[in-house]
């Protein structure tokens, strides 16, 4: 019973497949409260899919996902929405609503779910925008923002309802080094200052190492390794070493499965 209160999310024996491909095979993951947990893995291992399963945008084939001890598969739509109000999610490309301004984007959850007076909404929104350094961009439209700015606005929006859980989907992809550093610090600061728990999906090993308390490396539908960044980089496993050090050769093949190269060039594969 005791460890249940420490665990934010427990994934037990999760199976999920899309079409013919089985993406997760008996996956088990525990995410602790109040920490930054990273989920890493080579591209195409279904990291984003895992997030969509945790937020029940997708339903698993079998297995259970407990969020704060509650099986999310059993929630009604109303209770699911109640839970989602306590989760903030940062999408890969920001996913800002393109027909409204930056300010209105951040205000969106407040306007949808609360009956706060306009002055208070303005106050909250400007505070959150200030936290990500974009108070000056409040009146801009999402199309005028750079990629890094859009992601910071999305971060402000994700935390505007003061969520207990923040979920980041590839927050570091495609950012310049400055924006990247800013986001990395924001993730850490947000987690510690606001006492929330963060889940981070990424394959940027260096950034993860600076920000995460605990990380899981997923490969081939299973957890290949887990632990603190230091523990991971000192692991002997070939796969972990290959991934952490970015080596081309190792258990994870660079080439997608294909017929024999020479045979195919010679046109013999058609037979």
């Amino acid at each position: 019973m005791n460890d249940q209160s420490d665990n934010l999310i427990e994934i037990r024996n999760l199976n999920y497949s899309r079409g013919q491909r089985q993406i997760f095979k008996n996956l088990n993951i525990t995410i602790a409260k109040g920490q930054v947990t990273a989920i890493m893995g080579p591209s195409g291992t279904g990291k984003t899919t895992l997030l969509r399963l945790i937020t029940r945008e997708l339903n698993p084939d079998s297995g259970t996902i407990l969020v704060e001890g509650i099986d999310i598969a059993k929630l009604s739509q109303k209770d699911l929405y109640k839970l989602r109000k306590r989760m903030g999610m940062l999408f890969q490309n920001g996913a800002l609503l393109t027909d409204i301004s930056v300010f209105e984007n951040v205000a969106f959850p407040l306007r949808e779910h609360t009956r706060l007076p306009n002055r208070l909404i303005r106050h909250i929104v400007l505070t959150k925008l200030h936290a990500v350094g974009l108070r000056g961009a409040a009146d801009m439209m999402p199309s005028e923002l750079s990629g890094g700015m859009a992601r910071r606005v999305a971060l402000a929006r994700a935390m505007v309802m003061d969520p207990a859980i923040l979920i980041y989907d590839e927050p570091f992809v495609g950012l310049d080094p400055i924006s990247m550093g800013v986001i990395v610090r924001l993730v850490r600061k947000m987690n510690d200052a606001l006492g929330i728990s963060s889940i981070l999906v990424s394959h940027d090993v260096q950034e993860i190492a600076t920000v995460a308390d605990c990380s899981y490396l997923i490969s081939d539908g299973k957890v290949a390794a887990s632990g603190s960044p230091d523990e991971l980089s000192n692991t002997r496993s070939d796969l972990v070493r290959q991934f952490m050090h970015g080596m081309a050769d190792g258990p994870v093949a660079f080439h997608y499965s294909a017929p024999n190269y020479a045979e195919q060039l010679l046109g013999r594969d058609a037979e």
Binding site: T55, E57, Y81, K82, R84, K85, M87, M89, F91, A95, L96, L97, F108, P109, E112, H113, R157, M161
Partner: peptide, 9 residues
């Protein structure tokens, strides 16, 4: 999806 995640149908 983002709306869905912000608990808005």
């Amino acid at each position: 999806s983002a709306m869905e995640m912000m608990a808005t149908n």
